[in-house]
Simulated scan of single mutants.
Amino acid sequence: MKGNTGEKTYSCEVCGSTFSMNYLLQRHMRRHTGEKPYSCVICGMAFTEKYALNRHVRTHTGEKPYSCEVCDLAFSDKSALKRHVRTHTGEKPYSCEKCGFAVSHSSTLKIHMRTHTGEKPYSCEVCGLAFSQISIMKNHMQTHTGEKPFHCEVCGLAFLRKASLQSHVLIHTGEKPYSCDECGLAVSHSFSLKIHMRTHTGEKPYSCEVCGSTFSNSSNMRKHLRRIHTGEKPFSCEVCGFAFSSKYDATKHMRTHTGEKPYSCQVCGSAFSNSSGVKRHLRTHTGDKPYTCDFCGLAFSNNISKKKHMQTHTTERL
Rank of each mutant, 00 (worst) to 15 (best):
S273H: 04
S273L: 10
V278S: 07
K279H: 08
K279Y: 04
H281V: 07
H281Y: 11
H281C: 08
L282I: 11
L282M: 11
R283K: 04
R283F: 01
R283W: 06
R283H: 13
T284Y: 09
T284A: 02
T284K: 13
T284C: 10
H285Q: 10
T286V: 10
D288N: 13
D288R: 06
D288A: 13
K289L: 08
P290I: 01
P290K: 03
Y291K: 07
T292F: 12
D294P: 09
F295P: 01
G297P: 04
G297A: 09
L298C: 03
L298N: 05
L298D: 14
A299W: 00
A299H: 00
F300K: 02
F300L: 02
F300C: 01
S301T: 15
N302Y: 06
N302I: 00
N303H: 13
I304A: 11
I304P: 02
I304E: 04
K306C: 04
K306D: 01
K306M: 15
K307H: 14
K307C: 11
K308L: 04
K308D: 07
K308E: 09
K308F: 10
K308A: 05
H309A: 06
H309P: 01
Q311Y: 15
T312L: 12
T312G: 12
H313S: 05
H313M: 05
E316D: 08
